[in-house]
């Protein structure tokens, strides 16, 4: 009796049986900002590697913004002891992100028990006191955004943040480059609410061309998705799309459409104060500049609040170096 075929059959049978058990033993994975990676066809072979590379590049951009000085979040114990983060010296629309709860990885002299070893580390590592620090020009990180989107076109924050960094320079050429980058991202990710929302925001906020913003924002709103099916990044993008859609309709004097968009948005985000306000304000038609500023300021405040809540998570959900501070009118709370 030949044993080899039996052995192979046994191996194959046990393999099939084990495959059937996979769904029972593996914990369902849900990473913010990573769903596209896991479901895209390319993820089957190189997806995880590409995701790792793009994540690594993403973290490098943060490091380069601090000129190589490694930063970390305060621990829970440190917060309880009242230790404050370093903060930064940038305010308003110039602020890149919230640094109020981060400190340098290499501890300062007064918080270091290592004596001469600590002194040597501060002399050999990229270390400086970072209280009230400023950041390097994020444009220096632009090549990395380009690189991470080439390596991993499904890495949404690479497209959106790269475009936003381009958009910080308010020249028409820079804005057009940002829009081109987002359109390229849209080709790779046609169903990404974040990219569609960013495109709409570029046209509405930076170019003040609300008619051109509408198709992208409507397309985001028409995506057959539920907010709870999206990861954190894309859910934020969808919410932003509804907000800018309402603003664009309002600017174009289409209060009825604004009302309907706000109602649809509230179906997905029932607690959003801005959409509630838009739905409640209708059919009031805005004509005064002050009223328009109110709604734009509300968008800024809402998005600022949300993103500061999860800045410096050092994961994909930490996706906006300057994304939400970069509004043309500069209203800050």
């Amino acid at each position: 009796m030949k044993t080899a075929p039996i052995a192979i059959g046994l191996l194959a049978g046990s393999g099939l049986f084990a495959s059937a058990l996979r769904s029972e033993v593996e914990v369902p994975k849900h990473h913010a900002g990573l769903n596209a990676h896991e479901t895209h066809a390319s993820a089957t072979l190189l997806g995880q590697f590409r995701t790792s590379v793009s994540s690594w590049l993403w973290l490098r951009t943060d490091l380069y913004l601090h000129n190589g000085v490694e930063m970390r979040q305060l621990t829970e114990a440190e917060r309880k002891r009242g230790i404050a983060g370093v903060g930064n010296g940038e305010h308003g629309q110039d602020a890149l992100h919230d640094d109020s709860s981060i400190v340098t990885v290499v501890p300062s002299k007064e918080r270091d028990f290592r004596g001469v070893f600590g002194d040597i580390e501060r002399a050999t590592k990229a270390y400086m006191r970072m209280e009230g620090h400023s950041h390097n020009d994020p444009k220096s990180a632009l090549p990395l955004f380009r690189l991470m989107t080439w390596i991993d076109p499904q890495f949404i924050p690479g497209w959106t943040t790269g475009a936003t960094v381009l958009g910080r320079e308010r020249s028409d050429a820079a804005l057009d480059m940002g829009i081109e980058l987002l359109k390229e991202g849209l080709e790779h990710n046609p169903n990404s609410p974040s990219i569609l929302s960013e495109l709409g925001r570029f046209y509405a906020s930076k170019k003040r061309d609300f008619a051109k913003a509408l198709p992208y924002l409507r397309r985001a709103a028409d995506l057959p998705v539920r907010a709870d099916q999206l990861d954190e990044v894309e859910a934020d993008g969808l919410l932003s799309a509804y907000r800018w859609l309402c603003l664009s309709y309002r600017e174009l004097g289409r209060s009825g459409d604004m009302y309907r968009a706000a109602q649809r948005g509230l179906g997905l985000f029932p607690d959003d104060p801005l959409l509630l306000r838009c739905a409640a304000d209708t059919p009031y038609i805005f004509t005064e500049k002050g009223q328009r500023e109110w709604i734009e300021q509300s968008i800024s405040e809402s998005e600022d609040h949300e993103h500061h809540g999860h800045d410096h998570d050092h994961g994909h959900e930490h996706h906006d170096h300057d994304h939400d501070h970069d509004h043309d009118h500069g209203h800050k709370h």
């Binding site: 000129n67 190589g68 490694e70 070893f117 040597i120 580390e121 002399a123 050999t124 590592k125 990229a126």
Partner: peptide, 28 residues
């Protein structure tokens, strides 16, 4: 072993970092 002290790569990689003081090189 404090291997990390011998690696000044982050200073090399980023811009405008001054060379390490000589006493530190001697100490290491």
């Amino acid at each position: 072993p404090q291997f990390g002290l011998f690696d000044i790569g982050p200073r090399v990689a980023n811009e405008n970092w001054a060379p390490v003081p000589l006493w530190v090189v001697g100490g290491l």
